[in-house]
Design a protein around this nucleic acid. Sequence first.
DNA 1: CACCGGATTGGCT
DNA 2: GCCAATCCGGTGT
Length: 200
Amino acid sequence: MNNQLGSTFYQSEDVVILAKRLLGKKIVSSVKGIITAGLIVETEAYKAPEDRASHAYGNRRTHRTSTMFEQGGKAYIYRCYGIHHLFNVVTAPEGVAHAILIRAIEPIENVDTMLSRRKMSKVTPNLTNGPGKWTVAMGITVDYNGISLIDKQSPVQIFSYPDITDDKILASPRVGVDYAGECALWPWRFRIKDNIWSGK
DNA sequence: CACCGGATTGGCT
DNA sequence: GCCAATCCGGTGT
């Protein structure tokens, strides 16, 4: 019940299904010997080649997108607006560029460290309720792009927890992808209903 | 090599 | 609600 997710999980289903199944799973970082952890409460699926919102739209293979084409179970991390570090879980077999953006977590371990990294004094949802916020709280940067999430020694690991049932999942269009035409309407953003730690 | 713009956030009006 | 921050990836010259 509390085991690290293995290679099979990341290739077992379509990325849209896996984006829902990642909800409620535990994500742990170990940065310079400091461990922080949270539960995944908000995700978005990105599915190349047909998804215009994906960096790998049309199977565009560049230096940046190459991580997304690797075998499922790696981390695709990129810099957004020159400032923020956004973390994705790569899924599917090698050559298929599917990824899941983790947009929010519920902090559960070493919250003091998270507060200090975010330069905050009080615990509020603002601590981890955005894709550029929780990576700061957990000490994750683009330096980790391409790392394995399956390896037992990895600085970022994801652990099995019971799936959240569909009746407790809220599906809606993805955030900030207006440029993607009709793909912007696809309801591939998933949140745990009534969870205060997911975004608005 | 120049230009355009972004899977966001936080501060200020 | 508006907008600056900040920098690099992708594209075309």
